[in-house]
Protein backbone atom coordinates (compact mmCIF):
# COMPACT_ATOMS: atom_id res chain seq x y z
CA UNK A 1 0.00 0.00 0.00
CA UNK A 2 2.66 2.45 1.06
CA UNK A 3 4.62 1.85 -2.11
CA UNK A 4 1.53 2.36 -4.28
CA UNK A 5 0.63 5.75 -2.82
CA UNK A 6 4.17 6.91 -3.20
CA UNK A 7 4.15 6.14 -6.86
CA UNK A 8 0.83 7.96 -7.24
CA UNK A 9 2.19 11.07 -5.63
CA UNK A 10 5.02 11.07 -8.06
CA UNK A 11 2.65 11.02 -10.99
CA UNK A 12 0.54 13.92 -9.64
CA UNK A 13 0.73 16.89 -11.98
CA UNK A 14 1.70 20.12 -10.20
CA UNK A 15 0.82 22.38 -13.09
CA UNK A 16 -2.49 24.20 -12.98
CA UNK A 17 -4.76 24.11 -15.97
CA UNK A 18 -5.12 27.68 -17.19
CA UNK A 19 -7.88 27.06 -19.71
CA UNK A 20 -10.79 28.26 -17.51
CA UNK A 21 -8.75 31.32 -16.55
CA UNK A 22 -8.18 32.15 -20.18
CA UNK A 23 -11.87 31.63 -20.89
CA UNK A 24 -12.84 34.05 -18.19
CA UNK A 25 -10.29 36.63 -19.30
CA UNK A 26 -11.50 36.45 -22.87
CA UNK A 27 -15.02 37.03 -21.68
CA UNK A 28 -13.98 40.07 -19.68
CA UNK A 29 -11.98 41.45 -22.61
CA UNK A 30 -15.00 41.10 -24.85
CA UNK A 31 -17.11 42.92 -22.29
CA UNK A 32 -14.70 45.82 -22.00
CA UNK A 33 -14.17 46.01 -25.74
CA UNK A 34 -17.87 46.30 -26.36
CA UNK A 35 -18.44 48.79 -23.57
CA UNK A 36 -15.73 51.24 -24.51
CA UNK A 37 -16.63 54.15 -26.70
CA UNK A 38 -13.95 54.00 -29.30
CA UNK A 39 -15.63 56.34 -31.74
CA UNK A 40 -15.95 59.77 -30.25
CA UNK A 41 -18.58 62.19 -31.45
CA UNK A 42 -17.46 65.01 -33.65
CA UNK A 43 -18.19 68.68 -33.24
CA UNK A 44 -19.03 71.31 -35.79
CA UNK A 45 -18.08 74.84 -34.86
CA UNK A 46 -20.43 77.64 -35.68
CA UNK A 47 -20.54 81.29 -34.85
CA UNK A 48 -23.80 83.18 -34.92
CA UNK A 49 -23.85 86.90 -35.62
CA UNK A 50 -24.45 88.89 -32.48
CA UNK A 51 -27.97 90.25 -32.36
CA UNK A 52 -26.97 93.83 -31.72
CA UNK A 53 -28.27 96.50 -34.03
CA UNK A 54 -24.92 97.86 -35.18
CA UNK A 55 -23.96 94.49 -36.51
CA UNK A 56 -27.25 94.09 -38.25
CA UNK A 57 -26.57 97.17 -40.33
CA UNK A 58 -23.16 95.87 -41.26
CA UNK A 59 -24.69 92.59 -42.22
CA UNK A 60 -26.91 94.24 -44.78
CA UNK A 61 -23.91 95.77 -46.47
CA UNK A 62 -22.89 92.38 -47.79
CA UNK A 63 -22.27 92.79 -51.49
CA UNK A 64 -25.32 91.60 -53.32
CA UNK A 65 -23.31 89.97 -56.06
CA UNK A 66 -21.59 87.78 -53.51
CA UNK A 67 -24.60 86.80 -51.45
CA UNK A 68 -26.47 83.56 -51.82
CA UNK A 69 -29.38 82.72 -49.57
CA UNK A 70 -30.21 79.11 -48.83
CA UNK A 71 -33.54 78.20 -47.32
CA UNK A 72 -34.17 74.84 -45.73
CA UNK A 73 -37.69 73.54 -45.44
CA UNK A 74 -39.01 70.23 -44.27
CA UNK A 75 -41.99 68.30 -43.11
CA UNK A 76 -43.17 67.40 -39.65
CA UNK A 77 -44.74 64.08 -38.82
CA UNK A 78 -48.12 64.91 -37.33
CA UNK A 79 -48.19 61.85 -35.11
CA UNK A 80 -44.79 62.14 -33.49
CA UNK A 81 -44.06 65.83 -33.95
CA UNK A 82 -40.64 64.96 -35.33
CA UNK A 83 -39.14 66.30 -38.51
CA UNK A 84 -38.34 63.93 -41.34
CA UNK A 85 -34.79 64.50 -42.62
CA UNK A 86 -35.44 62.56 -45.81
CA UNK A 87 -38.30 64.92 -46.71
CA UNK A 88 -36.16 68.01 -46.52
CA UNK A 89 -36.37 70.64 -49.25
CA UNK A 90 -33.85 73.20 -50.27
CA UNK A 91 -34.27 76.56 -52.01
CA UNK A 92 -31.77 79.22 -52.90
CA UNK A 93 -31.46 82.61 -54.57
CA UNK A 94 -28.60 84.89 -55.50
CA UNK A 95 -28.34 88.43 -54.24
CA UNK A 96 -31.52 90.21 -53.29
CA UNK A 97 -34.93 88.58 -53.58
CA UNK A 98 -36.66 89.64 -56.80
CA UNK A 99 -40.30 89.96 -56.00
CA UNK A 100 -41.54 92.41 -58.64
CA UNK A 101 -43.51 89.71 -60.42
CA UNK A 102 -44.23 87.45 -57.47
CA UNK A 103 -47.99 87.50 -58.05
CA UNK A 104 -47.44 85.54 -61.25
CA UNK A 105 -45.17 83.15 -59.41
CA UNK A 106 -41.95 84.58 -60.77
CA UNK A 107 -38.94 85.14 -58.59
CA UNK A 108 -35.27 84.36 -58.59
CA UNK A 109 -35.71 81.52 -56.14
CA UNK A 110 -34.89 77.99 -57.28
CA UNK A 111 -35.14 74.60 -55.70
CA UNK A 112 -32.07 72.44 -55.08
CA UNK A 113 -31.09 69.00 -53.84
CA UNK A 114 -29.16 68.18 -50.70
CA UNK A 115 -25.68 66.75 -50.99
CA UNK A 116 -23.86 66.13 -54.22
CA UNK A 117 -26.25 63.97 -56.21
CA UNK A 118 -28.15 65.63 -59.00
CA UNK A 119 -31.83 64.77 -58.90
CA UNK A 120 -34.80 66.67 -60.25
CA UNK A 121 -32.90 69.83 -59.37
CA UNK A 122 -29.27 70.87 -59.19
CA UNK A 123 -27.34 69.66 -56.19
CA UNK A 124 -26.37 72.28 -53.64
CA UNK A 125 -22.74 71.17 -53.64
CA UNK A 126 -22.32 71.97 -57.31
CA UNK A 127 -24.06 75.31 -56.91
CA UNK A 128 -21.82 76.38 -54.06
CA UNK A 129 -18.72 75.03 -55.74
CA UNK A 130 -19.46 77.09 -58.82
CA UNK A 131 -19.73 80.25 -56.73
CA UNK A 132 -16.60 79.50 -54.77
CA UNK A 133 -14.62 78.26 -57.77
CA UNK A 134 -11.49 80.30 -57.20
CA UNK A 135 -11.07 79.14 -53.61
CA UNK A 136 -11.99 75.52 -54.34
CA UNK A 137 -9.41 75.28 -57.14
CA UNK A 138 -6.66 76.63 -54.93
CA UNK A 139 -7.60 74.39 -52.03
CA UNK A 140 -7.63 71.36 -54.33
CA UNK A 141 -4.08 72.18 -55.38
CA UNK A 142 -3.10 72.36 -51.74
CA UNK A 143 -4.84 69.07 -51.07
CA UNK A 144 -2.84 67.36 -53.79
CA UNK A 145 0.35 68.67 -52.31
CA UNK A 146 -0.78 67.53 -48.87
CA UNK A 147 -1.48 64.01 -50.07
CA UNK A 148 2.01 63.76 -51.57
CA UNK A 149 3.45 65.02 -48.26
CA UNK A 150 4.57 68.13 -50.11
CA UNK A 151 4.62 70.44 -47.10
CA UNK A 152 6.73 68.32 -44.81
CA UNK A 153 7.89 64.75 -44.40
CA UNK A 154 6.50 64.76 -40.89
CA UNK A 155 2.84 63.73 -41.04
CA UNK A 156 1.72 66.03 -38.25
CA UNK A 157 3.61 68.98 -39.64
CA UNK A 158 2.23 68.25 -43.08
CA UNK A 159 -1.31 68.37 -41.68
CA UNK A 160 -0.85 71.58 -39.75
CA UNK A 161 0.80 73.45 -42.62
CA UNK A 162 -1.96 72.30 -44.95
CA UNK A 163 -4.66 73.51 -42.57
CA UNK A 164 -2.95 76.88 -42.16
CA UNK A 165 -2.56 77.29 -45.92
CA UNK A 166 -6.17 76.30 -46.49
CA UNK A 167 -7.33 78.87 -43.98
CA UNK A 168 -5.23 81.51 -45.70
CA UNK A 169 -6.83 80.77 -49.06
CA UNK A 170 -10.31 80.76 -47.54
CA UNK A 171 -9.70 84.19 -46.03
CA UNK A 172 -8.04 85.63 -49.13
CA UNK A 173 -10.08 88.72 -49.94
CA UNK A 174 -8.58 89.04 -53.44
CA UNK A 175 -10.48 85.95 -54.50
CA UNK A 176 -14.15 85.93 -55.34
CA UNK A 177 -15.86 84.34 -52.38
CA UNK A 178 -19.56 84.03 -51.73
CA UNK A 179 -21.39 84.99 -48.55
CA UNK A 180 -23.90 82.33 -47.69
CA UNK A 181 -26.96 83.13 -45.64
CA UNK A 182 -28.62 80.06 -44.24
CA UNK A 183 -32.24 80.22 -43.21
CA UNK A 184 -34.43 77.43 -41.97
CA UNK A 185 -38.16 77.19 -41.50
CA UNK A 186 -39.50 75.74 -38.24
CA UNK A 187 -40.40 72.55 -40.13
CA UNK A 188 -36.85 71.88 -41.24
CA UNK A 189 -35.09 69.02 -39.52
CA UNK A 190 -31.91 69.56 -37.55
CA UNK A 191 -30.12 66.98 -39.71
CA UNK A 192 -30.85 69.02 -42.86
CA UNK A 193 -29.55 72.21 -41.26
CA UNK A 194 -26.36 70.44 -40.22
CA UNK A 195 -25.95 68.98 -43.69
CA UNK A 196 -26.10 72.47 -45.20
CA UNK A 197 -23.59 73.74 -42.63
CA UNK A 198 -21.50 70.78 -43.66
CA UNK A 199 -21.52 71.91 -47.27
CA UNK A 200 -19.75 75.07 -46.14
CA UNK A 201 -16.93 72.95 -44.81
CA UNK A 202 -16.82 70.78 -47.91
CA UNK A 203 -16.82 73.74 -50.28
CA UNK A 204 -14.31 75.71 -48.22
CA UNK A 205 -16.66 78.60 -47.54
CA UNK A 206 -15.90 80.51 -44.39
CA UNK A 207 -18.31 83.41 -44.76
CA UNK A 208 -21.72 82.14 -43.80
CA UNK A 209 -24.31 82.92 -41.22
CA UNK A 210 -27.53 81.54 -39.86
CA UNK A 211 -30.39 83.97 -40.06
CA UNK A 212 -34.07 84.05 -39.38
CA UNK A 213 -36.51 83.53 -42.21
CA UNK A 214 -38.69 86.50 -43.17
CA UNK A 215 -42.05 86.97 -44.90
CA UNK A 216 -40.54 87.63 -48.33
CA UNK A 217 -38.64 84.37 -48.22
CA UNK A 218 -41.66 82.35 -47.19
CA UNK A 219 -43.86 84.01 -49.81
CA UNK A 220 -41.31 83.21 -52.51
CA UNK A 221 -41.05 79.66 -51.26
CA UNK A 222 -44.79 79.14 -51.45
CA UNK A 223 -44.81 80.38 -55.04
CA UNK A 224 -41.94 78.10 -56.04
CA UNK A 225 -43.72 75.14 -54.47
CA UNK A 226 -46.91 76.00 -56.30
CA UNK A 227 -45.10 76.29 -59.60
CA UNK A 228 -43.35 72.96 -59.10
CA UNK A 229 -46.66 71.29 -58.40
CA UNK A 230 -48.13 72.65 -61.64
CA UNK A 231 -45.27 71.12 -63.54
Amino acid sequence: MAIKSKSRQKKFDTRIDFTPMVDMNMLLITFFMLCTTMIKSQTLQIALPSNEKVENELKNKVKESEAITIIIDGEIDEKTGLAKPEEGMLYYYDGKPETSNLINGESNMKQAEFGSKQGAYDAIRGILQERNKEVVLKVNDLKKKWKDMGFSNNEEKNDSIFQAERKKVMNDSTLKRPVVIIKATPHASYANVVSVLDEMQINNINRYQIDRINEVDSAMMIMVKKKNLEK
Binding site: T43, L44, Q45, I46, A47, L48, P49, S50, N51, I72, G74, I76, G81, L82, A83, K84, P85, A184, T185, P186, H187, A188, S189, Y190, A191, N192, V193, V194, L197, I210
Partner: peptide, 25 residues
Protein backbone atom coordinates in the same frame (compact mmCIF):
# COMPACT_ATOMS: atom_id res chain seq x y z
CA UNK B 1 -31.36 64.51 -36.32
CA UNK B 2 -35.15 64.37 -36.47
CA UNK B 3 -35.57 67.32 -34.13
CA UNK B 4 -37.44 70.16 -35.83
CA UNK B 5 -35.24 73.19 -36.38
CA UNK B 6 -37.60 75.38 -34.37
CA UNK B 7 -36.66 73.46 -31.23
CA UNK B 8 -32.91 73.84 -31.77
CA UNK B 9 -33.46 77.44 -32.78
CA UNK B 10 -34.89 78.26 -29.34
CA UNK B 11 -31.68 77.06 -27.72
CA UNK B 12 -29.50 78.93 -30.23
CA UNK B 13 -31.49 82.13 -29.78
CA UNK B 14 -31.21 81.84 -26.03
CA UNK B 15 -27.45 81.56 -26.29
CA UNK B 16 -27.35 84.47 -28.70
CA UNK B 17 -29.32 86.65 -26.30
CA UNK B 18 -26.71 86.26 -23.59
CA UNK B 19 -24.02 87.00 -26.20
CA UNK B 20 -22.72 83.47 -26.55
CA UNK B 21 -22.44 83.55 -30.28
CA UNK B 22 -19.85 80.84 -30.58
CA UNK B 23 -20.61 77.25 -29.83
CA UNK B 24 -20.37 73.83 -31.39
CA UNK B 25 -22.87 71.25 -32.58
Amino acid sequence: QTTPYSVVNVVMDNLQTIKMNKFTL
